[in-house]
Amino acid sequence: MKENIVIIGGGIAGLEAAGQLIRLGYSPIIVEKQDHLGGHVAEWHCLFPDMTPASDVVSRLTENVSEANIFVNTEILFINHLKDSYNVMLSNGISIVTRIILFTTGFRLFDASKKEEYGYGVYDQVITNRDLEQWFSTGNDDRVNSRELNAVGFVHCVGSRDEKAGNGQCSKVCCITAVKQAIEMKQRFPEAQVYCFYMDLRMFGKKYEDFYISAQRDYGVRFIRGRVSEVSENIEGKVIVKAEDTLAGKPVKVTLDLLVLMAGIVCNPDCTKVASMIPLQMDSDGFLKSRDNIMDITGSSRSGIFYAGACTGAKTVPETLAEARSAALDIHNYITSSRI
């Protein structure tokens, strides 16, 4: 069982796949660019729909990989294609010869400052979904003024379903994240008006619809169907949001103390870079191209290269974990079948 398995990315997909491979008797190697494991989930406060603390998820996954070789703060310098294996050169000077590479490179949160009209980085009271999660965790963010928080807005689809932003895809998890964060804001500030500006609400997952109804019925979150067109700042430093209330067929505007942009999910540029070393094909949606989008989402077009998680498109946490287990099983089958 001394088969080398290189897992690129120490987010939840990489951790779960490594945990499963260890259980199957392998010793996988995790290469993580950042200084910590858990990826985006490690930066989140809690997860829908049961408000599970994100740190619990990450620590459980991390416990399962205590036997794995883990390199943090490490990048892939290059990958050479050998006869029937790959030589992976790491930035820490170590090189690994392996037949098997699992891409768990995840996603990059869309850079909200690219939507210039929303004023992220220009107006003081404009933050992103990630900023808000960090504020939930730490309580530190000068942009969030807890003493005067009477009106909060959420803008759905920032950098999603937006050809001009270079991402035509739905990022899948932002609708439910906005509902979750809107409820959390209402819990902290019951008197505040909380608005969600949406184009469509896509409540596809387990108990999402219940969560949405609860936001409406129990918390009085006000959902306005219309994409925000422009954000500005008034003389008091509050943000003014313009949209169309498409259900009323009229323009609408509102003054807010905080505006949260639901930044979408785009392919991680580091993933694209590493994929080009092999090279691997990208799909038309900008993510890695699976061998088959229905029957073999974790397989690539190249022997020994596997995918799991958001490197092939936006996914929820449970979907990512399920894919990671599936990829671990695929790798196990690949090794055992080639041994025969």
Binding site: Y195, I213, Q216, R217, D245, A248, K250, V252, K253, V254
Partner: peptide, 25 residues
Amino acid sequence: ATINLDNVDMEKFTLLHEMEPDVYK
């Protein structure tokens, strides 16, 4: 024609929501 939500008095609607929580559904 713009609806300015800052100027909408929600007092009665809040009362309605208390009586009819489902109105927001």
